[in-house]
Design a protein around this nucleic acid. Sequence first.
RNA 1: GCACCCGUAGCUCAGCUGGAUAGAGCGUUGCCCUCCGAAGGCAAAGGCCGGACGUUCGAAUCGUCUCGGGUGCGCCA
Length: 581
Amino acid sequence: MDIFAEFAARVAAALKSLHPDVADELVARAVVEPPRDAGHGDLSSNAAMVVAKPLGRNPREIAAALAAHFADDPDVESVEVAGPGFLNFRLAEPVWHRVLKSIDLSGAEYGKTDLGRGEKVNVEFVSANPTGPMHVGHTRGAVFGDALASLLAYVGYDVTREYYINDAGGQVDVLARSAFLRYREALGESIEIPKGLYPGDYLKPVGEQLANAFGRGLLDKPEAEWLPVVREYALDAMMALIRTDLANLGVEHDVFFSERTLHGADGDVARTLAWLRAEGLVYQGRLDPPKGQVDEDYEDREQTLFRATEFGDDTDRALVKSDGSYTYFAADIAYHRNKYLRGFKRMINVLGADHSGYVKRLKAAVKAVSGGEAEIDVKIMQLVRLMRNGEPVTMSKRSGDFIRLSDLVDEVGADATRFMLLYRRNEQAMDFDFALVKQHTRDNPVFYVQYAHARTCSIFRTAEVELPALELSAEELGAAPLELLVTPSDLELIKALAQWPRTVTAAALANEPHRIAFYLYDLAGTFHAFWARGRDDRALRFVNPEDLKLSLARLALVGSTRQVLVNGLTVLGVSAPDELS
RNA sequence: GCACCCGUAGCUCAGCUGGAUAGAGCGUUGCCCUCCGAAGGCAAAGGCCGGACGUUCGAAUCGUCUCGGGUGCGCCA
């Protein structure tokens, strides 16, 4: 159960009964949330203030009437009007015991909702060019997209995780030429990779593969003949590398969508352009040259343009290059029309900071191809600076010109990589400190949260030894006398657990998985603090041979804490180890 | 020149879509280990939320302007 949602509904109902004429939309704006200052109570509502003005009434007056409505409610210990018209509730202890009981009953389901109502959502993320293995620049978006997809699935959306393979542009020809050199190298030639081609070692196996498959057969062929063949081999190999990197990070996609399938005489790009033309959204025209940086090669010419400005973009956008082929954007419009035609009215794209200039035209494209029916939320990942001992890391000796995602995962592990990258708002540029994520201290949020989970497990291990009289089965714990949990520490922890559902919902509505990470860190802090109090005060121990009933109730509380930690970590794709080595 | 992101404690960052006296970690200072794991806990000090106007019952949050920092800027992908 979500006690906040429950009381929001009760307050709304009370408001409706007192003021039947007040509009539903207005009532819906009222919220019930924990007050910033716990001294104000458990729950706080702004309902009276929200409706005061339209009703032409004094907010405190309305609040007082609402308070009177709840005065006799057995769930409410006290209710008072405060400040400009807040309604502050202090709930009776049995309510919190009920919340705790519901967590035990819901288990892994606790926090799940039907917010999404099964609606289809497409989350496109990573979409790294298939020209080499993943590098650290891709990592943040990979982790974010994966966690966001899990979060949305958790609240009831039908989520598709999608990867758009940019396998149609010039860069894959460059890849093929680079691989061809490695092929010649594999046949014994001494090779120097010229500037402009990809120098990475990861193409050597492709060269060897080609040598095994074709022998010297490709050497005397013209490029036009070998290039498509080599390109296929190289593309497959690169996608295999990328999939491996993603798998090691714990990221999986449902759909790998090839850009190439959109091209061709009767492909989606051609059809989409024809459709846009029919809609009057394409015209021949000129654009102003870009300001700021001077481009010597700029050629002022008439070109085929998409009326992006009609949909909120800053300028219209080119669809056809001067050589007659389609621009990347033209294919992307077709791609997003394809998503729309596959039934996605909600789309999310996760892009790197270097693509921030692309957001408006993408939104414009989605609006255009869906007739305004579909919406896309573009999440921009700001830069991650790798740090080591306070110094920025720029080069990796192992990989040559860039740091690979796999270097990161090899050194600090998938869990730490994921949690740290999620422990920050996506709009916020961040430093990723190798030293920090390997520390076993409170500064390291990954450790701190996983440690909390490990501690819940360790408490149960201890209980089995120290409380042999207790049977710690799910049934026994489910029947624990929760009403014995009455100390401020008990209630504080229960109240922290009670916030999980609303945290999930709010995070999902905002497409902000970092809120989950922060919640877990806070919950871990509350739990560790409780645990520590047991050292000074035996009455606050979870495991206390002097009081078996209380111990059982406390263990039920520990069990629910563990469950919520697991639920949260699962959404983030971070493991919950039983013990830390 | 334009667009987007960020300016909140000495440092790194939250701030729940406009709420009450702005929070956490680190760092600083002072306490706490015969005790379920001290890889920890408790407490104190520390703020004009970059600045200025505006919107309203109410602004760190919304709007306009402005000052710093970052990222980008026809046919690359």
